[in-house]
Nucleic acid binder design. Structure first.
Lengths: 204, 204
DNA sequence: GTCTATACAACGATAGAC
DNA sequence: GTCTATCGTTGTATAGAC
């Protein structure tokens, strides 16, 4: 399920096919031939429209990241309660497991190990995700007594890493059973945190 | 820097070369030819000793995981203070960024997207890492008032994911500057947590 | 802009000499 | 057990017809 906007033009068909291939078969399976077969178009079109496979993958990453970050940003808008935010984060993570936008990022990150130019592109495309998390954190802790003491950028970097690893790991878990438990745990932690911030005892 | 035990036999030389190649060039760069060039031996030896490239990579994963988990387990032995544990975790993460054992796991996880058999092997090899984290958590919270209420397996799964993502992401950060800030943040959090557990106010 | 055909490199893997 | 040589496949990429 690619980030469908209007897969009308050929360029968009190619981008969608590249996205699907990347999510389903990973970076090692994302060859020009495989992508073309996936989208049922001619292999040569990739090189005509994007110059090289790598440039196509980078374009796919940039498009998908932009669309998805904007999408997720809308979803967290106005949420100021920590528990609610965890709830939304869980929902977004579950959706993303289906859609695959983070999976794609993880795959390209792995692929960037042998390709510095790709590495640069991935770093650049991932920054908006980190910024999104930072925005969520600031919303949630606004007005809290510890608001001014929190290292938001570092927290955002850490939480982004968590989701990245979670998605990489969850893909291997055939019956995504661990994920739900992760979020029920995060729920518990957020509850405890809210207690503590409010000056109440840890449990209760 | 592979997990050197005694790289004497040919099989071990091949395993070391596969490890190095995987860490330096990632899954997309880990071809039979590249591995052979890296270890300065004949390409055909890989197939004689391991049958296929994939089976070599799986053998590399299994060996490295066993050695490194045991190594790290020794390092966390006897640590019961949360702050100390964070300190050790930071040191181990820094070491691992040099050595690459988690990087290798992340790379094979990415590669497993197009290879279910590889996926199975990776899941199996990663479990000891999760168990290691769980052990660390139980040590640290033993005797604490919240000891009985913590979902250790879920926490271990989450923290393992965090390190996985952190290593994937940090590899792209040319001047590993973010990592240190992550751990100073974790230090802060562990300090706050210790306060709270002890019934003291959050900051202080 | 899209197709067929093809060049050429790198890949996994094997045969057979040593 | 290790080497050279090689086969067949798949990869990226291009030329040229349409």
């Amino acid at each position: 399920m690619p980030p469908k906007t209007a897969g009308d033009t050929t360029k968009e068909r190619i981008l969608d096919a590249a996205f699907d291939t990347l999510v389903e078969d990973g970076i090692t399976g994302a060859s020009a031939r495989a992508i073309a077969a996936h989208g049922e178009f001619n292999q040569a079109l990739i090189f005509y429209h994007f110059g090289s496979v790598r440039d196509l993958l980078i374009a796919t990453l940039e498009r998908s990241s932009q669309i998805q970050v904007e999408r997720y940003r809308e979803r967290i808008e106005g949420i100021t309660d920590l528990g609610d935010m965890v709830h939304v984060a869980a929902a977004l993570h579950a959706e993303d497991m289906e859609r695959g936008s983070i999976t794609m990022v993880a795959q390209l990150m792995a692929g960037a190990a042998s390709d510095p130019e790709m590495g640069e592109a991935v770093v650049k495309a991932f920054q908006p995700w980190i910024d999104l998390v930072e925005r969520a954190l600031r919303q949630v802790f606004a007005g809290s007594p510890i608001e001014a003491f929190l290292p938001y950028p570092d927290m955002a970097y850490g939480i982004s890493s968590l989701f990245l690893g979670l998605e990489l790991l969850s893909k291997l878990d055939p019956d995504h059973e661990q994920e739900e438990r992760i979020f029920s745990m995060m729920n518990m932690v957020s509850g405890m945190l809210e207690n503590v911030i409010a000056g109440k005892p840890l449990l209760g």
